[in-house]
Computed example of a mutant assay.
Amino acid sequence: MGALLDQKYEKLFSLLDANGDGVIAEDDFTLMAGRVRASFSEERAAKGETYADEMMNYWRALRDTADADGDGRIDRDEFRQALHQVSDRFDTLIGPLYQAGFHLADRDDDGRVGREDFIAVLVAIGVPADEAGATFDRLAERDGQLTKDQLMTAATLYYRDENPDNAASHLFFGAL
């Protein structure tokens, strides 16, 4: 794994450590899912439930792959060593979480997300609002909307791409 992926994985670790205790555990995923769900209205409650379910599926996949010592917590070293394996199975292990987040943010179910809702999700997981806005601006179409395909491509590249020229994927969760 190269230095760029290490930087991205470190950024991701810091976001997933939602309570800031230096390890990733189930309570971090519960906390993050709650923050994301709270950032949207009650009318999206069913979508929020799906998002929370996918967040827990992501936790279980990560735990099963990364928790080498079986203590129910993932430290930075365990995370770095295992994330490449998890990212190789992005479509089945990680992709559903991103799809659920997209559907939660897709206010009218038209397959497109606006800037405000995209930023709301990223801010809820810990990305500063200005960086979340910059991410949206890099990814969105000229009409100011983001499609699920655009989101999924950028998310997949975040986990896998090491080309330093591809800022749209590297800066998915803000500055590294």
Rank of each mutant, 00 (worst) to 15 (best):
A3G: 11
L4D: 04
Q7M: 07
Q7P: 00
K8Y: 03
K8S: 03
Y9I: 00
E10Y: 03
K11D: 01
K11M: 03
F13P: 03
F13T: 00
L15T: 09
L15V: 09
L15I: 14
L16P: 01
L16T: 02
D17K: 00
D17N: 07
D21E: 01
D21P: 01
D21T: 02
E26P: 04
D27F: 03
D27L: 13
T30M: 11
T30K: 13
T30C: 06
M32P: 00
A33K: 00
A33V: 00
G34H: 08
R35I: 08
S39W: 01
F40M: 08
F40D: 10
F40W: 10
F40E: 12
S41P: 05
E43L: 09
R44K: 14
R44E: 08
A46N: 08
T50Y: 02
Y51G: 13
Y51A: 14
A52S: 14
E54A: 12
E54N: 15
M55Y: 01
N57H: 15
Y58E: 11
W59I: 08
W59T: 10
R63C: 13
T65K: 11
D67M: 04
A68E: 15
D69Q: 08
D69C: 07
D71A: 09
D71T: 10
G72W: 09
R73Q: 15
I74Y: 12
I74W: 12
F79E: 07
Q81V: 09
A82R: 13
L83R: 02
H84T: 14
V86P: 08
S87F: 04
D88W: 04
L93E: 15
I94F: 05
P96A: 05
Y98E: 07
Y98I: 14
Y98D: 04
Y98P: 00
Q99L: 12
Q99N: 06
A100Q: 06
A100G: 07
F102N: 00
H103R: 14
H103A: 14
H103I: 00
L104A: 11
R107D: 14
D109G: 12
G111I: 03
R112S: 10
G114P: 02
R115S: 07
A124W: 06
I125T: 11
I125C: 06
V127F: 02
P128E: 10
P128G: 09
P128F: 07
P128Q: 05
P128V: 05
A129M: 01
A129P: 10
E131T: 10
E131M: 14
A132C: 04
G133F: 02
G133I: 02
A134C: 05
F136G: 01
F136S: 02
D137C: 04
D137H: 02
L139D: 06
L139G: 07
A140N: 07
A140K: 08
E141K: 09
R142M: 08
G144W: 02
G144K: 05
Q145N: 07
T147Y: 09
T147R: 05
K148W: 06
D149A: 14
T153E: 15
T153F: 12
T156A: 11
E162W: 08
N163I: 12
D165K: 15
D165A: 15
N166T: 12
A167G: 11
A167T: 13
A168R: 12
A168S: 15
L171E: 13
F172K: 05
F172M: 10
F173C: 00
F173Y: 13
F173M: 03
A175P: 07
